[in-house]
Design a protein around this nucleic acid. Structure first.
Lengths: 331, 331
DNA sequence: CTGAAAGCGCTTACAG
DNA sequence: CTGAAAGCGCTTACAG
């Protein structure tokens, strides 16, 4: 099967490649090409199953109509869902998305950015890894359109789509307190990222405002030894002077590990101990008891991130907008 | 910041673009370019942060060094994990992967294939949707390298990476029977796909061989109304003449919906009723009781699929191999 | 109104 | 041993 290019169609019809290009791209303004030839070209393209070569088009046009999406791990449901929605919206706008996984590693993130740049992506949507400010700044310097999502850097002037982490965690903690829990605890990652810091701050402030704050009730676990650290953290919390009667888990992976650890100890959730989670997960929906959780507007986040990116790509409109979408406490 | 191309480097060094290309691609055989100039070129490229334009390279070379991966839904953990591993292996081989979601819809699948072709992917890895034989055949005709994964078509001569669905389901069912369960049931999707048919067949044959088969104990649910159908199916199973004492769920989404439905009825899993699942899920790992499940070798599947594809792309080696990897029953 | 030509950034066969 | 030239498939400014 011969490769079908513009030239092939042109030759078959005894017309120039330019004419074919014009017609097929709907750029046949003010009747440059006759109705009749137009139709012939369109028919012939269909007959030959002509598929334009987007590499050539991209090279000529100086854009690839593709964007890079960099996440920590595409097999994590949160990122998977984010990716799905970003792809859906991107498709509507005619963009492909190429996904890269960092595994939360800085070096990986650097490699992926270079790789995506060589692929000539028109822009980047990134959930930045810890400590990647410098990398992000270098992308900014390269003038490549960029949007941060889920995680942002307060000191960096870069378009970002975030959620109201502080506020939602404050409110959720307050609700626990209002329900009568006297000793809620908080378990989060041992990392210095703005979004998790904000979640922690929300918890701490709410506790302070209620006069209940105990520093020992905030525990940190590592990404790498999640399950082991979780077992230890929960052990400690249950041995605390003021025995913990509720736990607020700061992310979906932490929530899963936490619930697992509680199950292992034979504790009855929402009876022996109250639990509050971040993000919806398959598992949460399964339980015969209700677990309140904070629901992030993932689809909206995807949509906004893409809009912010495409605004930059197409309208060269570089307002450094930071969007804070509202998460919701589902009880 | 000026765009850095080969030409820029060449001009700065007073040498031709050809020479720069040769050196940077390590094609400087038999000392065509002097050591000294070589070093200068490499240094200059680093200094200018030269990133090759893979669009141009792809256009010239006739390959894009990218492959398309078509799955039903990237936010499903099974596909997410598959995608993660495929990306990891692809990266090692210097390939990008572009992911498309079909949502199990035939038209979507067709659109995505055309789209990926226009992106000039060098090959396709597909988990085909129901009824997509004709589409797959048309891809085959286009001579584009192709590998099917997870789901295959027995009548089609196309390289595929599958698992031993029949056998593993036979063995798993037999184990239920050996454990003393007299009335196991099977719940699967109402669809005509080879892989799910094989799973069902494994269950049925094992039941027949034990003299226990009851047609009423095989239920089918729809993809679209999964939860409603599941509630109905389980109701019926529990009302059966021979009361069901175990349920074998045929996929991970079905397993989740099934467990949820059982919880809703207040049934104690592995006490009131024995449950067996397909695929590992976060939720399964959570429970304080053990749920036996069939573990697919996802990473191996990813690796084999990629190998089969790259063999075709690079060595033009088109043996129509069907690989059957072994799933494992984890109890 | 239409076609020929140039050029996007690269690679490689060819001429010197 | 090295550079000039052609060409991958497209688009668009330009000349007729």
């Amino acid at each position: 099967m011969e490769k079908v290019s513009l030239k092939v169609i042109a030759k078959e019809l005894g017309v120039s490649a330019a004419t074919v290009s014009l017609v097929l791209n709907g750029k046949n303004k003010n009747g440059r090409v006759s109705e009749e030839m137009s139709k012939k070209i369109i028919d012939k393209a269909a007959e030959l199953h002509y598929i334009p070569n987007s590499l050539a088009k991209g090279l000529k046009m100086g854009h690839s109509k593709s964007i890079g999406l960099i996440v920590a791990d595409i097999s994590n449901v949160f990122f998977g869902t984010l990716a799905l929605h970003i792809q859906n919206y991107a498709e509507k706008e005619g963009y492909t998305v190429i996904i890269g996984n960092t595994n939360e590693k800085l070096e990986e993130m650097g490699k992926i950015i270079t790789f995506l740049n060589s692929r000539q992506v028109d822009g980047l949507i990134i959930t930045p890894a810890e400590g990647s400010e410098v990398l992000i700044e270098s992308v900014l310097k390269g003038k490549k359109p960029l949007v941060l999502v889920d995680r942002g850097f307060p000191d960096l002037n870069v378009p970002s789509v975030l959620i109201n982490n502080y506020e939602i965690c404050y409110r959720s903690t307050k609700q626990l307190i209002d329900q009568g829990f006297k000793n809620p605890a908080f378990i989060t990652y041992r990392q210095d990222q703005f979004h998790t810091n904000e979640r922690k701050r929300g918890f701490i402030e709410a506790m302070k405002d209620a006069g209940l704050f105990t520093p020992d009730h905030v525990k940190e676990v590592s990404y790498q030894y999640l399950n082991e650290d979780m077992d230890k953290a929960i052990s400690q919390l249950l041995k605390c002077e003021k025995k913990v009667d509720a736990i607020f888990f700061a992310t979906n992976t932490i929530s899963m590990a936490g619930v697992k650890s509680l199950f292992k100890r034979g504790m009855l959730i929402q009876k022996d101990i109250q639990v509050m989670c971040f993000d919806e997960t398959d598992a949460i929906n399964l339980f015969p008891f209700r677990v309140p959780f904070i629901k992030q507007p993932i689809e909206e986040m995807a949509k906004s991130a893409l809009e912010l990116l495409i605004d930059q790509i197409e309208k060269k409109d570089v307002k450094n907008q930071k969007l804070f979408l509202e998460a919701e406490l589902i009880t």
